[in-house]
Each structure stands twice: as C-alpha cells, then as structure tokens.
C-alpha cells in the first residue's frame, strides 16, 4: 500500500486516498446501516398506509410527507458519502447542487397543474358541480357466474 497519493494528472493535487483504512470502513459501515434502517422505516410506513387505506386522509398525507423526507435523506447519504461529493471542492459541489434547485419549482408547478386539470375536468371548467359519491357500474345479466 503506497503512502504517496496517486494522481491522475499533473493539474490535480488532490487524491481521495484514505489515510486511515479503519476510519473509512467505519464510515462505509455507518452509511450502510443508515440506508438500511431508513429503507426499513419506509417499508413500515408503506405498510401502515396500506392498513390505513380508507382511514383518515390527513394521516396518509402526513405519512407520505415523512416518506419523501426520508428518501431525500437517503439521497443525501448516497451522494455525500458513496459518491464522495462531500469531499470535493465547495465550488464544485455548488455547480452540482444549485441547478438541482430547479426541481423545487418544477415539482410545485407541475403537481399544481395536474391538480388544476383534475378540478377543471370534474367541474366542466366550473360550470358543473360534481357528485362526490362513486356509483357502481351496471352489471349485465349473465356476467355473474
């Protein structure tokens, strides 16, 4: 095992060599456990939603919000530690992260658009008040065996 950093080019002075193998393995183990635990929590919340179906709409919405935040946490751990983005120069990190902020507008605008479509369709663009109850489709005689 060499102690000199292995450089890919003359223009680079940084080599992501881990001076301490044990410390590195500890980080990898920690991140693996964090990712696994978050996934298990997500699965638990998913099953909870399944069992709550038909229950309180607000509770399901709340659980969905928690699951989204947990997924973002997973994304952070993968990029920061597995992809070593956290070890790069701050300016470089910003060139990756700042453009992704577009997603904030992207998600809000398009989901709002989808919801608006649903309302316009259901109300015939406001000219009609929809029934809130679902009706059972007609069954032709002979379909039931």
């Amino acid at each position: 095992m060499s102690t000199q950093p292995v450089l890919a080019s003359d223009e680079i002075s940084f080599a992501p060599q881990h001076a301490d193998n044990a410390a590195f393995m500890k980080t990898v183990k920690k991140v693996t456990i964090i990712l696994s635990v978050i996934t298990i929590i997500e699965l638990g919340l998913g099953l909870l939603m399944y069992n709550l179906s038909g229950g309180s709409h607000l509770a399901v919405l709340l659980i969905k919000g928690v699951v989204v935040i947990l997924s973002l946490a997973k994304a952070f751990y993968i990029t920061a530690y597995f992809m070593h983005l956290g070890d790069e120069i701050r300016n470089f990190i910003m060139t990756i992260i700042v453009p992704l902020a577009l997603f904030i507008w992207f998600i809000i605008a398009f989901l709002y658009e989808g919801d608006s479509w649903r309302n316009l369709r259901n109300t015939r663009a406001g000219s009609y008040k929809p029934k809130t109850e679902q009706t059972v489709p007609a069954v032709k005689p002979g379909a039931e065996k």
Partner: peptide
C-alpha cells in the same frame, strides 16, 4: 485525505491546474 501541498494564496482559476482539483 492525502493532499499534496499547494502554495498559500494560489488562485484555483489562475491556470495550470484544474479549478475543481478534479480530472476532466
């Protein structure tokens, strides 16, 4: 992290080195 010594006050964008200290 092993980092070769860079003289203090070196400008990253001054040329001759990768501004992000990373290969192309």
């Amino acid at each position: 992290m092993a980092t070769a010594a860079i003289p203090a006050g070196t400008k990253w964008w001054g040329g001759g080195k990768s501004p992000f200290n990373m290969s192309y």
